[in-house]
Design a protein around this nucleic acid. Structure first.
Lengths: 165, 165
DNA sequence: CTCATGTAGTTTCCGTGACAACTACAAGAG
DNA sequence: CTCTTGTAGTTGTCACGGAAACTACATGAG
């Protein structure tokens, strides 16, 4: 029953799981305490903000934030209702929309990032050395890309964070 | 208020997020293809199995698998209905239950692990060097433990001013 | 013993996301 | 053109999990 996964790797994988859940939970908690929206909103806003032209098609956005297209439609509905983004019809393609941020959306991003960053600094930066960070980045980026090759079928979870600017 | 997070750490955090989502998705896919239950079931079964005496209280189990108590009640209901676990009343405490595995539960675990392990080997072990694995384990385990200190709501955190106890 | 308070687990209600069916438009073949 | 097939996005349905109210039992003060 001990299917061979080397101990160091098994330990590393467990660490990934617990760091992920602990940090995401911490970020969500801090955002909620600051009366800010959940991390999912940040992911979407940030994905739009960093896209070329600061606009992005729904399907591409869904891929960016690793959510289903149907799920994104509803998430975007909420964001639009909150006034932080807009859907603009695409001239050349009558089926599609560009998602763009409103000024309120940009502002929201600027309010969320410091909270996110504070958690990262206090829990992640403080606990991980620069060398470890390099190793984590290198190893896990490779693993993620290998794992993504083989999405026999899909499913998803959360995505990336970064600094707005 | 440009909350700065060092680049290596930011990159590492992004890598954690994408590796987590890609690998979890891959495992879920493979489990589904093998007509096996989702990862959440594995987590529960495995947590029970590795507990001292191979039994564990509901609340402790909830903490182990990072799920709310209410959520665990329902998950355990499904598992129990599937015949893979049982709730045994605790003699000394009329409120509580021990969760224990049935033989079918042990068998389920033995069928699930090879699938899980296969994905880990093909996506994680193959992409991550032993040294990187060590660094990932060390760094992320530390980060997780630091992060876990804080997601709990502001309790009597008398960190300031007064003398402790 | 009795009462107040705390704890274990369950239940109710609600928000969210996956999946598949569906609508509208696009694009290439003939 | 027109037909077929493919793609973008939305909608309906469903399963799952969180939060808080709730029940039953435990425990310590008096």
């Amino acid at each position: 029953m001990t299917a061979r996964v080397p101990d160091p790797h098994l330990g590393a994988w467990r660490a990934v799981l617990s760091a992920h859940s602990a940090l995401v939970a911490a970020v969500e908690t801090e955002l909620a305490e600051a009366s800010l929206p959940p991390l999912a909103w940040y992911d979407v806003l940030w994905a739009v903000r960093r896209s070329p032209g600061k606009r992005i098609r729904m399907a591409d956005l869904a891929a960016e934030v690793t959510i289903s297209r149907g799920g994104l439609t509803k998430l975007a509905d909420r964001l639009e209702k909150a006034g932080v983004l807009l859907r603009e019809a695409v001239e050349e393609d009558g089926r599609g929309f560009y998602v763009v941020l409103t000024p309120a959306g940009e502002a929201m991003l600027r309010r969320m990032w410091p909270v996110y960053a504070r958690v990262l600094r206090s829990s992640f930066v403080s606990a991980v050395s620069a060398e470890e960070a390099e190793a984590i980045d290198a190893g896990l980026t490779r693993a993620a890309s290998v794992a993504q090759q083989r999405p026999a079928r899909r499913k998803a979870s959360r995505s990336v964070g970064g600094s707005p600017r």
